[in-house]
Design a protein around this nucleic acid. Structure first.
Lengths: 233, 233, 233, 233
DNA sequence: CATGAATGAGGCTTCATTCAT
DNA sequence: GATGAATGAAGCCTCATTCAT
């Protein structure tokens, strides 16, 4: 997903949008006529309706339980219409997630860019929490769809991981000499995703408080006695 | 799942085995005869075959894609046989997970018990990693089945969380005064689960190395410059 | 079913059509457009095909032996189509019977209405026989489905009984003082239904002859000697 | 079933017991030994248990809904045991009905025989009602199993019909000249069966009262005005 | 482009029947 | 003879997908 949270990085990295919807977008722009324009706008509205409906359906019933019929019903269009816009359930799901996270990425990048402190890991983490907070619905949906075993399912987590990995690799090797960097990226990912999980059920603390807590641990760890003192049973 | 990693805690907490399999188990024990005993053993063998087959099927194809027919085929029994042992796919899944994690819990508790350092958080974390490592297949299966949206699906993660939470609560309040304890438990859960995730694709570092890395961060955090130095683009 | 054989009685008593088919009917009427109208008519044709096929299947193989697949095959539609129109076998059966007997009731009422002699029991009985004769297939199907034990199954017999009961109750008590009226209604029902049974295997006598025979017994009974003279062995 | 209600008529008319159970009975009697005798008795007890269980199962759930497993469970024997005694559900059902009605027939015949008035239709009808009353459970079961469409299902009704037919045929033609005799037999069957139906839900009137009512109509019919006077709406 | 009726493959489940013990 | 685990054919039903209008 996020890859790198700075607008300097090419956004079209995300343009791995599926062929189907890609073609659609292209064909819309090819026309200069009035009527076609209106049709095109109507078309987009239907598409948006479907995406919104899918979001709702996935949130309510989960990826696997939601049927195409559920989606079209919520979107108030005919079943057949679905197939004019998306190949199948997988595609609308992927599109939903892709578009959602692309937007989120853009916002994170923008936030990072305009930050006076410049591009630091702390700034990135704060920005991630800030924007993830407003789109926690997206994470919930993405995580509701652990699909088909070994087949890699789309996981925002993995992209977050990659992004953090890339950031950590920009440091000289000796700064993190004592750490297994890929694992470190995993652990940070674990902390961030658990923070977002938390918001599925709680609203407090907000993004800033959450970042504070996460950074506090990442910076200083925990009091030694936590680990060594026998647990009071 | 794990609740508390010490044999002093009642293990039968986990006896929430489902009615179906419960009835079966009972009926087996009611006989003292020879013939019945053998039959009973054969019955158990079929059940075990089914569980192993289910494990394989879920690992290969994921919970949703695996069909009952897949399972019975792998177990080399007739379809009908499945229903002699389990009500439906959900039940065999739950049984698989329940029994697997119950065993794991017992092993963790045993390891913790016999540890010379006594019951400390460090010991617990090391034990968790040690045993999770040998049963990473179980976690993979458990995580392959994000079921029915918001409806509670069985998540070993949640039980790990609860266990950690309980441990943290045994400390005096002022030890962790600076921390949001529930969040802290989440973060620790995130670190541990990401460590286990790592093993889905890598074998190194093993459980001890993994515990080392995790504890190292939890104890001392990361070098300050990681957060403040601008990232080299 | 029949309740009362006179158009003065509210016919919509019979509108206990099932929810499923009700929804369908409603949705048809919501459109005023051309295309929709044709589609709607095609839809109805499929439904009718299914009902006819079900009638045939039930008549040939009986309610319990007839499968959904039998019905859709006879109707020459896909299996899935069945479920677009009826929830399950029970619903198509009930619909078949309900609609059939509703029509029959209407016809009986019409016949009674236009009868010069006015609304008398004799007229009613004659009308029942007349119309039951043309729809004996319906009775045969209805009687082929003694369903689920003590649970109430749909029985045209019971409705006939109710109707007769209601008619008998309109007479002053002393007219029938010597009779156990509910039993009397039963006996009349028995005579009528046995008459209809007869037509499952014979065509003669027709409805008028049948009514003649039934009324003759009901009016005068049988010669006394039938009961008292020793049977010639 | 009843054919003729007089012990002079050969009872083995009913010996159309199915081959399966026939063979069983024979094989029991072939042995003179002690041990075999005990085994044989035990065998019969199991058979009787199964028949009683079947009776219960059919009464509770109806012929179609009752499964072999239901029956063996109620009989407290293994499923396999069923097949040592009966070929399939149909056979145990037929046996149940056959044996039940054979007993009933015997009782009716005995009652008729010892009746001072001799063998008259009235006596027969009274006897039928008397014994049908004590075995109304049997009728209920028999009628719960309208089986396979055109395939003639076993119907006590049909046998009652045959018996009445035979009785009526013993009268000189001119006594019943005005009547269509086969239809007359049907109507009488209808009256009798409806009387028995009545007892599924009511206990009063008992067999004698019922016979009284039935005979009263058959003898004298109903008041003329019942048929001709307009119904008071 | 939008529609929704029709399709049928595929999954689930039951239950009559067999057979080794 | 009695048992009950195992079997698999057969029925039910859903739902992604197509296609004529």
């Amino acid at each position: 997903m996020l890859i790198f949270f700075c607008s300097a990085f090419p956004l079209d990295f995300f343009s791995k949008v599926n062929y189907h919807s890609y073609m659609r977008k292209v064909s819309q722009n090819n026309d200069g006529e009035r009527g076609k324009d209106r049709a095109s706008r109507r078309r987009m509205r239907t598409r948006t309706d479907l995406l919104k409906a899918a979001q709702l359906a996935f949130a309510q019933r989960g990826y696997h339980e939601a049927s195409i019929a559920d989606i079209t019903e919520l979107a108030d269009v005919g079943v057949g219409t679905f197939y004019l816009h998306f190949r199948d359930k997988d595609e609308i799901f992927t599109t939903l997630i892709d578009e959602g996270f692309r937007d989120m990425h853009e916002q994170i990048a923008a936030t990072v860019d305009e930050n006076p402190q410049g591009l630091t890991l702390e700034v990135v983490i704060r920005a991630i929490f800030r924007h993830a907070y407003t789109r926690r619905d997206l994470f919930q949906i993405a995580w509701s769809a652990r699909r088909s075993g070994p087949v890699r399912s789309y996981r925002p987590q993995e992209e977050l991981l990659t992004s953090l990995m890339q950031i950590l690799e920009t440091f000289e090797t000796d700064t993190l000499a004592a750490y297994h960097v890929p694992l470190l990226a995993r652990f940070m990912t674990g902390i961030i995703t658990q923070g977002i999980y938390w918001w599925f059920e709680n609203d407090e603390p907000g993004p800033d408080g959450m970042a504070e807590q996460a950074l506090s641990i990442l910076r200083h760890g925990l009091p030694e006695q936590i680990f060594t003192r026998p647990i009071n049973q």
